[in-house]
Design a protein around this nucleic acid. Structure first.
Lengths: 230, 230
DNA sequence: TCTGCCACAAAGATGCGACCTTTGTAACCC
DNA sequence: GGGTTACAAAGGTCGCATCTTTGTGGCAGA
C-alpha cells in the first residue's frame, strides 16, 4: 500500500478546496474533522495543518480550530498554490496576474542574462530557439511547450539572480496552463518565434537593452492575447 | 511557560543555520538529533521538518535522514527565508537580488496603480508621502521606515494584482533590512522624497507612464546605492 | 578475487492515546 | 448591567509502538 503519501493527499485536497473557494475565508476546520474525513491520525492531520499554515491558507487558533484565511494572505508565489488556482475557477484571473508579473520581470531578467550569461548558456539558448522554431513549425505543441519552458528557464537562470531563477517554476506553470487551457494558437505565431530568436541573439551579442526590448515584445504579445486592457 | 513556540523555535534555529551555510547542502540531520538538541518530542521535530521541507531547505529520505538542499532549491520568495538570509553572511548579495527584483516589478506596479487605484487609495498615498517628508526631514528614521513601507505596500496593493501585492512583505523586509544594516543615509535624500511625491502625483493624475518613470527613479537610485554595476 | 543476491538494521512514516495550555463562553455574583 | 470566574473545547506536546522503505555489509557462487 502506498503508505507515505497520506500527508500530501490531505494537503492537496484541502489546498485545492481553499484556493477554489469551496472553503471560504473564515471557514473553520478542526483537526478531528480532518482525521475522520481522511481517516488519518492526528500526526498527519497536524503536519497537513502546518503545511497549509505555511502556505498562508489558514491559521490555527486554540479553542477555535483551523481558520481559513483570506486570499490576500496566501503565498501566491508558491508553485502549489499557483497550480491549484490555475486548476480552479479563478484560472483566468490568475493567469492574468502571472502574465503581468512576467511582463515586469522577464525583460529585466533578459537584460541581466545579456550581462551575465556564461558562454555555454548562450549556446544552449541558441540551440533551444532553433528547436522551438522547428517544433513550432511542425505543429508539435507538446514538445514546443517543453522547449519554451526551457528557453525561459535558461534565461531566468542566466541572469545570476536567485529571485529571477526562482520564478522558473512560475513561468513554467503559466506556459503549461496556457497550453492546457487552450489559450495557445494551434501553431506558434512567427512573430513570437522571431522574438525568441531576437532575445537569444541579443544575449549572444551582450546587448542588454536589445534583450530587454525583444523580451518586451514577447510579454506584451502575451498580454494582448489575454485580452489585457494594457 | 510559553509552551507553544516550540515548533517555531526549532524552525527558526535550523532555518537560520541552513540559510547561513552553517549546514551546507548535503548535510544530514535526523529527527532524533532534533529531538535531543532542542528537547522536543518527535511530533514537534516532524512538524518542523515539514516546514523546512516546504521552504525547500531540506528533503527527508528514509533510512538517510533530513538532507539539506542546495540554495537553488530554496523558496527564496518566502519572507522567512528572506529574513534569515538578510540576517546572515549572504546579506549583501541577497539585498542586491531583491533590489533587482524590486527594480523590475515596482515601476510596472506603479503604472498598474495609476490605472486601478481607488480614490481613497490615492488619498492614502498622498497622505503617506507627506508624512514621509515630515518624518524624513525630522530625521526620525524609525517612523520614516514605517511610512516608507506603508507607501510601497499601498502602491503594490493599488495595482490590483495579487502577485504584486504579495511582494509587500518582500519589499518591507528589504527596506527594514537596509535600515537595520546601516545601508541608509542618516537622513533620506531630498531626491528620494521628491520621487515618492512624483509617483503619488502620477497615480492621482492617472498617468501610468509618469508613475512608472518616477518609480524607476527610486529603484535605480537604490540600485546605485548598493553599488550595483548596472 | 569479483559479482550478485539477501538479510539486517537504520531512519523516516504513521498511528494512538494521554495530558497540558490557552481561550471562548456562559453562568454567576455584586 | 457589568465584571468575574469556572468550565470545556480545541490545539499543543509528549512518548511510545508499529510499519515501510532502503542503504549496506556479508555471504555464497562463479
Amino acid at each position: 500500500m502506498a503508505v507515505e503519501v497520506l500527508h500530501s493527499t490531505v494537503l492537496e485536497a484541502i489546498g485545492a478546496e481553499i484556493t477554489a473557494g469551496v472553503l471560504p475565508a473564515g471557514a473553520v476546520l478542526t483537526l478531528e474533522q480532518l482525521q475522520h474525513r481522511f481517516g488519518v491520525s492526528r500526526t498527519v492531520a497536524r503536519e497537513t495543518m502546518r503545511s497549509l499554515e505555511q502556505l498562508g491558507l489558514l491559521t490555527s487558533r486554540r479553542r477555535v480550530g483551523l481558520v481559513v484565511r483570506p486570499s490576500s494572505d496566501w503565498m501566491v508565489f508558491d508553485p502549489r498554490v499557483i497550480r491549484w488556482r490555475l486548476a480552479g475557477p479563478g484560472r483566468l484571473g490568475q493567469l492574468r496576474s502571472l502574465t503581468e508579473l512576467r511582463a515586469a520581470v522577464e525583460p529585466v531578467a533578459a537584460a541581466a542574462a545579456a550581462r551575465h550569461a556564461a558562454p555555454d548558456e548562450v549556446d544552449a539558448l541558441l540551440a533551444v530557439t532553433a528547436r522551438m522554431r522547428a517544433l513550432g513549425e511542425a505543429g508539435r505543441l507538446e514538445e514546443f511547450l517543453a522547449a519554451d519552458v526551457e528557453f525561459h528557464a535558461l534565461l531566468l537562470r542566466a541572469g545570476r539572480n536567485e529571485m529571477f531563477s526562482a520564478l522558473t517554476e512560475v513561468v513554467a506553470e503559466v506556459l503549461a496552463g496556457r497550453t492546457r487551457h487552450g489559450l495557445m494558437p494551434s501553431r506558434p505565431r512567427p512573430e513570437a518565434l522571431d522574438a525568441h530568436d531576437a532575445v537569444a541573439a541579443a544575449v549572444r551579442s551582450r546587448d542588454p537593452e536589445a534583450a530587454e526590448r525583444a523580451m518586451t515584445v514577447i510579454t506584451s504579445e502575451i498580454r494582448a492575447a489575454l485580452g489585457d486592457l494594457h
